[in-house]
Design a protein around this nucleic acid. Structure first.
Lengths: 216, 216, 216, 216
DNA sequence: GATGAATGAGCTTTCATTCAT
DNA sequence: GATGAATGAAAGCTCATTCAT
């Protein structure tokens, strides 16, 4: 004779879990995993330590749940799917823009992952396997299709694809997480534009005019 | 009245400090700053906790000393200086190669910096200012010289320069630090080659054949 | 939802705090503040260190709480109020007796205060202001009333009043705290009697018979 | 074949010991025995920890040496001896004045003794026996002589004598050590005058005029 | 489901003392 | 005689986790 419907109860529980995850993420992004106490998280989530342990069996498990939340995958996949017929230029620009957007939205999570993944190598494996590699593969195959087999003999599509993501992420980290923006602010347009430009000509490669060739 | 020459004593002290720094770096790269106890570091350095505190006033000061050790600066500077007259292609390839080498040598330090800098934003600022920006500026001016003012109206030299470093570092992090190499090993030659290739064509840009243009 | 009434819980907490204060006082009176460890106090109070820190945020705060407990004030005030119409002799004798009694009851606290106040000058100020001065002033005004303005031109009522307390306290300290009683036991009656006698004739002053005068 | 005469060496050693004692006293009076480290004392004495241990076998022994330095004895004895034939009034006034002076000179030592004696009861015994009791007895016998056997049936000469010292010391402690002077400054003349006045009439006692009696 | 008192292991740091040089 | 590097014990304090209510 449950007082509430099962679904309602589950919803409630999911809400509490979400509140805890959010609180943990916020505090960890500020001070790191070890330097944040469980009771601080519980307080930020509006409950006591004891209650928090009703929803997660340990601090470690809470970290795993936070990590599991993150993925750029859905975005990239749907974008690539949606724009598969568009020219490469278009897709790359949209992708860079979307990725930067996504990173900005999840700034806190990016910071936490950056710091905590290396401390938890098993988590790291899972994360790479589930969140990064499929996207990397998908985009690589898209690149291969667009660039043709000839060019693929010169560059490694996986490396190339990951390089694009690397440029975006690294720029994001140095500007937004480590505070580079305060020292040397760069306009977002310049960032997205330059990265796309560099990548595009980079993967296209080679097809320079004789004049440019002479200039080398 | 000291029995040993001052220089000899200083040497001895410097040796102990170095041993401590090395021990700290090794342990931190495995488990992180907070999760590594001072006594573990002392033991790894072949002394007791009390002795360690003779050489560093606090755990925090030890971290700062470890961070202060790191810089890619000298390398890049001397390389750019040495090869200033060589074609861009040459310099970029050498630079990417050298940076990858350096990162590999200092793998542990890279991991520690990655994780601890965001937790110590003041240190972060100092690090960015002293280790990253000067190099970034130097390479940007080198790029401008090589590519000419026209191209510079299309791309941002600082962003471009940092993108190169970003590609190298990010690849390094995902392969070597987070363990990507175990999931999807990529040959080092491919990495260096592709990154250089992408970057070079990327910054050169533009001078495509009409055929390529039509394909967009 | 708490299972016990709020008042009941508060009572419980107050009980634990009292147990800790008592334990701290007992140990400090034997070995001093610095030489007594927090875990020794906790053990004496029937709990572990961690639990003690649930009730007091620091060792220092515990000291402050102990100091805050002490005051001779209520006694003196009520006594002076109650016996305001009695002759000075009566009041002084009762006061000396009561003070000695009180000191004996709180022997441990007296010892702790004696030693720790000079190490914590801020606490010292608070203690003097709240516990000593009001009493001193009250008794001084009582003396002025009883002795008349003429005599007051010769002696300083604040100094005189404090002198009485000084005699009692100092005797107490040298006999009971420093162990003088073991070397040269003095009957309590003698102490109270002589101090009162000395003080009374002292403040009355002057009105000796010619015979006594000649004996000088 | 000593390079210096034995006496010269002894003098040197005595000088170092004195420097250490002084340094220890200065620091202890500020922060207390436990809260002052041996190396702080050594530094203040112009040597290193290791050297200090050449002169005193332990921190505890250093405390004992400091305590052993203190005594009011010589003063009181010589004063009483010198003024034995003067009227009681004169002697008491001089004694109070001299004691206050002495306490002021040795303010630091008084503070240290006050705090540390109760922590070191064995030292306390020695101190009482050697520094206080003989003086107390001497002054008591002087009082008996001056006041005559009749009065002695009413007051206890030891208690009376110590009361005088108590008044002086207690006033000194509350004003100078605990900082009472800052709250309620009292002129030194008033202090010495009132204490002497109170004591003198107090021990003389009894012989009031009928008028005064009626005023009670 | 929620609480919060309790714990014990572990942390960083200090310090009196020793001893080879 | 003087040094200062080394130590190990212990201090104050924090915190993840448990569990009776």
């Amino acid at each position: 004779m449950p007082r509430v419907a099962a679904s309602e109860r589950e919803e409630f529980i999911e809400g509490r879990r979400a509140a805890i995850l959010e609180a943990a993420l916020g505090l960890w992004s500020k001070a790191g995993f070890d330097a944040t106490s469980v009771s601080a998280i519980a307080e930020a989530a509006g409950m006591t330590k004891g209650t928090l342990y009703l929803y997660f069996p340990s601090k470690r498990a809470l970290l795993e749940a936070v990590i599991a939340r993150f993925s750029l995958r859905p975005d990239v996949e749907s974008l690539v799917e949606r724009f598969r017929d568009q020219p490469l230029e278009e897709v790359v620009r949209i992708l860079v823009e979307a990725t930067w957007e996504r990173l900005t939205e999840r700034k806190e999570l990016v910071g936490v992952l950056l710091r905590e993944l290396p401390n938890h190598l098993d988590q790291s494996q899972i994360f790479l396997e589930q969140a990064l590699l499929p996207t990397n593969r998908l985009f690589a195959s898209f690149l291969e299709e667009k660039l043709g087999p000839e060019r693929m003999r010169e560059i490694h599509s996986i490396v190339a694809g990951r390089s694009l993501f690397a440029m975006v992420l690294m720029f994001f980290v140095s500007q937004e997480i480590l505070g580079g923006a305060r020292l040397l602010p760069v306009d977002r347009k310049d960032i997205v534009g330059t990265i796309s430009e560099v990548f595009l000509h980079g993967v296209r490669g080679q097809t320079e005019s004789p004049a440019a060739k002479g200039a080398r």
